[in-house]
Structures are given as structure tokens and as C-alpha cells.
Design a protein around this nucleic acid. Sequence first.
DNA 1: CTCAAAATGTTGCATTTGCAACATATATAT
DNA 2: ATATATATGTTGCAAATGCAACATTTTGAG
Lengths: 216, 216
Amino acid sequence: MRFSKIDLFEGISGDDVGKMMCCFGATFRRFKAGATVCDYAGDGDEVGVMMYGRAAMTRTDEDGEIAVLELFDEGDIFGEVLAFANENGDSVRVVAESDCEVMFIKYSQITKRCENACAHHSRLVSNMFGLIAKKTLSLSRRIEILSKKTTREKLLYYFRILAKRYGDEFYLPMSVTRLAEYICADRSAMTRELSSMQADGLIELQKKKVRLIKAV
Amino acid sequence: MRFSKIDLFEGISGDDVGKMMCCFGATFRRFKAGATVCDYAGDGDEVGVMMYGRAAMTRTDEDGEIAVLELFDEGDIFGEVLAFANENGDSVRVVAESDCEVMFIKYSQITKRCENACAHHSRLVSNMFGLIAKKTLSLSRRIEILSKKTTREKLLYYFRILAKRYGDEFYLPMSVTRLAEYICADRSAMTRELSSMQADGLIELQKKKVRLIKAV
DNA sequence: CTCAAAATGTTGCATTTGCAACATATATAT
DNA sequence: ATATATATGTTGCAAATGCAACATTTTGAG
């Protein structure tokens, strides 16, 4: 078992993580690609931690239309309280995108003070806050993007975020189709806008490689 | 001091809250309406708790354009890790909308285990998770709304959320102008759409009173 | 390799929307 | 009460966008 790449356990040695598992009531389960990892129907006191593999949180509405709400990679955490709002009765599920393994921890056990030798419990709580904060940040970042009025402004705002992290030349971290879903724009209209932005000298595009041209 | 209405301290008696204050390094400050409560410039290890009054988180961009990111009422918490993404260098601040009092707690003190008689520490951590979860939920709800393609769909989705909570007849919890900002639509275009929805028999509007007509 | 499925790119057209420029109503301060 | 600022409602018009229909490329499974 490799805990070293899991942010939730950062700062806690593998041995200690192993010892902590029992008082968390942690369980491990493996899933084949395509399998349902969990179904949010109002049950969940559990937090899932992706040990390896990928999964997607999806919402299926009454018309059978499937929307991808979030993607989880190794180390990411998910759970009902962290789930997307599900005000109507649509089915929200986490589905394995590849073979994967998930650790489930009881939510209530994380917050409880631990009677055993869990010296690192507070570190875990702190890490958990950090992960939720990260998630909050990515949600608010998306709101910032969606609040832009035009597709061009949305793309530029998003590209500037990427450029700040990776430099003026970077690779899109997702497919064009997914990008269109992410910024909630029609895929063909977005492609049209990308061409137009290139024509206007704002960006250069080669496949997924983007170069953001600085304004002079 | 009234702690009874503050969700962060739910399940903890006023006396015990008072005792816990010292080990949190809590400080209290009062602000006049219009005063700056805090400025997010990368400092913050602090969480703010609104004891009474209202405040708004705002972003001011390079053109001096002010956008309201979030509103805080009594009991709400805010802090840098909970703040909106601020990728560009815009100034993000919390500004008092009325006279108010804010309690500041060191973030790191909440996660630390407490040596003193803070038997309720874990309850506090649990409450803190709950509050962050609530915030996450409201962010994702807004994303759901913004992801709708047309203004009509955005409004209907939002109205259905309100109808689920308050019944088919309810009052808008904000001004029309603020609603337009919330759903990121032009105010006049939104008003136009509201009229059109009323003409199409989807809703009835009287000032801020909305009645959602069920589809037959 | 071969084939099918998924992703990508392009375009015309109708609809939606932002924007500007108003008129009117309501709230707030003095 | 009066004045001033803010909120609300309306409309024409140009721009942006979703949508559909299609061609082409890339990916992935067998």
C-alpha cells in the first residue's frame, strides 16, 4: 500500500498511517473500470480517498443525460458533503474511469478525538482542511470563469490562470471537448472562438499546445 | 457576547466557548459600516466569524470595477483559504455593510490538539467541517445554475431550488439587481426574460414575490 | 492492421443576449 | 418634505452563441 502520494496523509509516516487505519474504520475496495464506486442517495458518512486509478462524479438527469461534475485522480478525496448540490432528484454517482482502489473512512471518525496512539490525528484534520480548501478554490475559480460574459473572456481568464502556473506556453490539461463542458460553452462555438482569437493574435494554438500572446 | 446563534459553536455551551477562546487566541473587533474588515493579500492564517451585522467580500479589478463575491451574515465564517480564487492581482477584501463585530481565530489553532480543558475541541472541528461543507454546497449550487445555457433555464433552476425549500410561492432573498449579478446575466435582459416567462405562464411575479407554476 | 467510435474542425442560421439609453419608482439622507 | 441616489422596467439593435449538419482526424479495441 502506498500512502506516500496521498495528500491526506502528508507529514505522517507510512507506518503511522497504517496504525491509524484501525481507529478510522478504514475499508479498502477495488473497482473495475466502469463500476459504480458510490451512489449519493443521502446515506454518506463516508469520505473516499482514491488510492490509485481515476473516477468521475457524474449526474444523470431524468432524460438520461449524463454530466461529468468532477474528476478524481490519485490522492483526491470525495464524499457526499463534498459532493455537488443535488437539489432535484437526479442520480449523482462516482464511476470508476479505470481500474482503481478506494479507501473509505468514516467522516465522523476524522473529527473525533482519538483515544489510541494517534499522535498524528491533528495533522490529518489539518490536511483534510487543506484538501477541502483546495476543492473550494477550484469551485470558486470555475465560478470566476463562468461569470465572464463572452466565451472569449472565459477562455482568456482560464488561459491566464494556466499561464500563471505553467508559463505563457502550456498544454491544455483536458480535451477540447471537456474544456467546452468546463466553461459551459457549445463545443463548436468555442472552437470557432478559438480560431477567431488566434486570428486576432491573442493566442497561438497547435493541438493542445497554447501560447498566450502578451498584450503590448 | 452571544454565541448561541453561531453555528461554529453549536453543541458547545456558552461557558465552554468562553473558556476555549483563550487557547484559540481569539480576538474581537468592531467595524463601522463601510470599513474594511480584512484584505486578502496573502497573509491570512485567520478565520473570521461574523458575530453580528453584515459584510461583503468584494473584488476590485484594475479598472476599479467592484464585484460582490459573497455576503456574510451573522454566524457565517470567512477566511483566506475559504476566499474566492484570486489568480490575477485584483484586490479582494471583506467590507462591513453594516456596523458589525467579527471574531478572528487562528486557523492553525483550530486544527491543533488542545492541551487545556477543551473537551469540545473535536465538536468545534466537526462544526467547522460542516460550515465549509455548506459553503462548498452553495458554490456548487451556483455552478449548477451558471452551467445552464439560457437565462430562462438559470432562473427556473434557481426558482426550483427556492421552491423546494419554501414552497411554490416564495420571496426572492435578494434584490433583482443582485439576482442578475448572481446568475451572471445582464439586469435588463434578465428583467425582459422574467416578463417573458410570466407571459408564457411559467411564473407569476409581484415585486419580490414569485409563484412557480407547475408544469401540467 | 482494420474498423468503429470518439474527438475535432467548419459553417449557416435563428435565437439569445449584452449594451445603451431611456422612464419611472423606491429608498435614504438632510 | 424635498432632494438625491439607487433600484427597477422597457426597448431597439448589434454581437455572441447555441444548434444542426457535416467533413476530417485521432484513438482505441480486437
